[in-house]
Design a protein around this nucleic acid. Sequence first.
DNA 1: AGCCAGGCTCTCG
DNA 2: CGAGAGCATGGC
Length: 308
Amino acid sequence: MATLKTELKPVPPFDFHLTADYRTRFRQDLASEVHRDGIYRRVCTVRDNLALMSVSSTGTIERPRLEMETTGQGLVQDDLSSLRNEAVAVLGLDYDLSGFYTMSKDDHLLSRLIDSFYGLKPTTEPDVFETLVSAIIGQQISAKVAVTMERGLIQSYGEPFFWDGSTYYRFPRPEKLAAVGIDELRRHKLSQRKAEYIHGLAKAVSEGSVDLEALKEMSNESVIRELVQLRGIGEWTAQWVLCNSLGRFEVFPSGDLALLRMLSRVYLDGQAVTPQEAEAFAERWGPYRVPVIVYSYAAIRQGIDLSA
DNA sequence: AGCCAGGCTCTCG
DNA sequence: CGAGAGCATGGC
């Protein structure tokens, strides 16, 4: 086992604990990523080997500094840059909140949110395959049910990494899920449909007929066009990938029913909105639509009543 | 006990 | 096009 250490300098302001908490709120139980005892850990892949990154804060919100320690088989100094990039993505380190904050200063509600969650950054999940599988599982079911199912997949087909008395898992690779039959996927309480979707996606990705990495360089419209051609992926899931994996923070996922309800409750006196109306409303948030959504959800998760 | 939850596909007018 | 059924599970 080799260990690499490095320091990271997030763009300030950055609240490490708030951001790591928000990010791992649902993933915490998945064992692929945790935030515990002040340390954020995540299993990653380096040149096809497993490694575990551990990140902790050594600075402040205004002068953020992070220490990252990564352990894994055969790690060499050259691996550092890709590991740093992964940490930057999963913790949103290079996102500059100042534009969002400036836009919000005349908005009463947003100002309140920013006071409460100053330094919280939107994050991304660089593994597009994981994001897609997770989104498919999460379609139409509650987040808790989805976590149970996803944990089953991860612990059955993911690759384990043992460290310090705990087991962490790398999310299952496409090749693995493609090799697993639909019937076996169903044992994890997936519906027949979802088992087919996930199996089909895994097969397409592992055979190379779909290049998820290429999406990172494509326009939002092209990403949606590509993704919705895959069975099991509709508008909502494609928008989900744009916001949560590809870092397109200007996108407003108008296909998200929970978001529409939140918008109606918080901003429109409970009056129902169509996706088109919601999109028109979200125009005012310019390129900061995802930050607005992240801060709003953060408040809701904490039980803060936004309509007050 | 029933309804709903951060949808999608397929079918049918 | 738009509307409606079916999918499957756990929590309230």
